[in-house]
Write a protein that binds this DNA or RNA. Structure first.
Length: 154
DNA sequence: GCCAACGTTGGC
DNA sequence: GCCAACGTTGGC
């Protein structure tokens, strides 16, 4: 099993929203690297850290599980959607997504500052300068360590 | 609101 | 294939 970190703005969709709805299609990803991770590498059952970006403070809020194989993102060919892409179509979808299922919310929110301060997380991808990728792979040891910081036993 | 860093687009 | 211009991300 692989581990991931997914970013979301809590003002738009946060861990509380995922808890409420249970399962959510992760649509709107419009970055090729992130798409490739979902389409080619994610497997049902993989676990992901749920990161709150653009929040005060930013940090990891909980855990989600990959709940579907990748499938085309229909918003890509919906002209009314803000995720519309004129080069995508049902025949040639271009953008893919998976569903995420709520696993748990951290009893102890882990702020970005705590991630940065932790020598064990030195090479975590999102801590690299200029890292903006919304979906990144995470090593199992890092995943487990962050869950521990969050007070969630998986 | 600022702005550094990055990805994408399109002219050439 | 280069690269300038542009748009976006996301911390601060």
């Amino acid at each position: 099993m692989r581990h991931w970190l997914i970013k979301s703005e809590p003002d738009v969709f946060g861990i509380g929203d995922l808890k409420r709805v249970g399962t959510e299609p992760w649509d709107g990803v419009r970055n090729y690297q992130a798409r490739n991770f979902m389409r080619d590498d994610m497997k049902v059952g993989d676990l992901a850290l749920f990161y709150h970006s653009n929040s005060t403070p930013p940090g990891v809020a909980g855990v989600a599980r990959v709940a579907s194989a990748a499938y085309p993102d229909p918003k890509a060919w919906d002209p009314k959607s803000k995720y519309y892409d004129e080069k995508a179509s049902e025949e040639n979808p271009r953008w893919f997504m998976v569903d995420f299922k709520f696993v748990g919310e951290f009893p102890d929110y882990v702020p970005l500052e705590a991630l940065r301060a932790d020598p064990k997380l030195e090479d975590l991808m999102i801590l690299r300068k200029g890292s903006r990728l919304s979906i990144t792979p995470v090593e199992a040891k890092h995943f487990n360590h962050i869950c521990k910081l969050g007070g969630l036993g998986i």
